[in-house]
Amino acid sequence: MSRLFMLLYSLIGPSLAGVGVIAVLTMGMVTLKPILVAAALGFALGLPAAWIVARRIADEAA
């Protein structure tokens, strides 16, 4: 499941980071700090999301 988790995180983390950055830019916050915080939060939120998805996929396969 570790490889599955890492594969999913490599897709989910950047996706959530991109959504966060786009949301921050849409709100008009164009300085570096809000953009970096949004990207970091997206990557951080990607960890539990990838773990949950990987666990559910592994449970279905078993």
Results as ranks from 00 to 15, higher is better:
residue 21 V to I: 15
residue 38 A to D: 05
residue 52 I to H: 07
residue 26 T to K: 12
residue 8 L to H: 00
residue 33 K to V: 14
residue 28 G to N: 01
residue 49 A to I: 13
residue 30 V to A: 08
residue 55 R to P: 06
residue 31 T to N: 05
residue 52 I to G: 07
residue 48 P to H: 06
residue 59 D to N: 10
residue 12 I to N: 01
residue 31 T to L: 07
residue 10 S to H: 06
residue 8 L to K: 00
residue 61 A to T: 14
residue 7 L to G: 04
residue 11 L to D: 09
residue 25 L to T: 06
residue 43 F to A: 12
residue 35 I to M: 06
residue 37 V to Q: 03
residue 6 M to L: 14
residue 16 L to I: 04
residue 17 A to L: 14
residue 22 I to F: 11
residue 14 P to S: 00
residue 13 G to L: 02
residue 17 A to H: 12
residue 53 V to K: 05
residue 37 V to I: 08
residue 43 F to N: 11
residue 19 V to Y: 15
residue 1 M to T: 02
residue 53 V to D: 03
residue 36 L to T: 09
residue 35 I to T: 12
residue 17 A to N: 15
residue 28 G to I: 03
residue 13 G to H: 05
residue 50 A to K: 00
residue 49 A to G: 14
residue 58 A to K: 13
residue 49 A to C: 15
residue 30 V to R: 10
residue 26 T to F: 14
residue 60 E to N: 15
residue 23 A to T: 14
residue 34 P to M: 02
residue 23 A to D: 15
residue 54 A to W: 01
residue 10 S to I: 09
residue 23 A to M: 13
residue 12 I to T: 07
residue 39 A to T: 01
residue 36 L to A: 11
residue 27 M to W: 13
residue 59 D to C: 08
residue 2 S to N: 10
residue 55 R to H: 13
residue 9 Y to C: 06
residue 24 V to E: 09
residue 37 V to A: 02
residue 40 A to I: 10
residue 32 L to P: 04
residue 27 M to V: 04
residue 2 S to T: 11
residue 2 S to C: 05
residue 61 A to H: 11
residue 57 I to S: 08
residue 29 M to D: 10
residue 8 L to N: 04
residue 30 V to K: 08
residue 5 F to N: 06
residue 37 V to N: 01
residue 33 K to R: 10
residue 25 L to F: 08
residue 7 L to P: 01
residue 5 F to L: 10
residue 46 G to E: 03
residue 12 I to R: 03
residue 10 S to D: 09
residue 7 L to E: 00
residue 24 V to F: 05
residue 39 A to K: 02
residue 47 L to S: 12
residue 11 L to E: 11
residue 48 P to C: 07
residue 4 L to G: 06
residue 5 F to W: 04
residue 54 A to C: 09
residue 31 T to K: 02
residue 12 I to D: 02
residue 46 G to R: 02
residue 10 S to A: 15
residue 2 S to F: 13
residue 27 M to C: 09
residue 1 M to H: 02
residue 32 L to K: 09
residue 44 A to C: 05
residue 42 G to H: 10
residue 13 G to Y: 03
residue 18 G to L: 08
residue 22 I to C: 14
residue 21 V to G: 10
residue 37 V to L: 05
residue 19 V to H: 08
residue 16 L to K: 01
residue 8 L to G: 05
residue 7 L to F: 04
residue 34 P to N: 01
residue 36 L to V: 12
residue 56 R to C: 15
residue 33 K to S: 10
residue 62 A to Y: 03
residue 51 W to E: 15
residue 25 L to D: 12
residue 14 P to K: 00
residue 37 V to H: 02
residue 26 T to C: 13
residue 41 L to Q: 08
residue 10 S to P: 04
residue 62 A to R: 12
residue 36 L to R: 05
residue 21 V to M: 15
residue 44 A to Q: 02
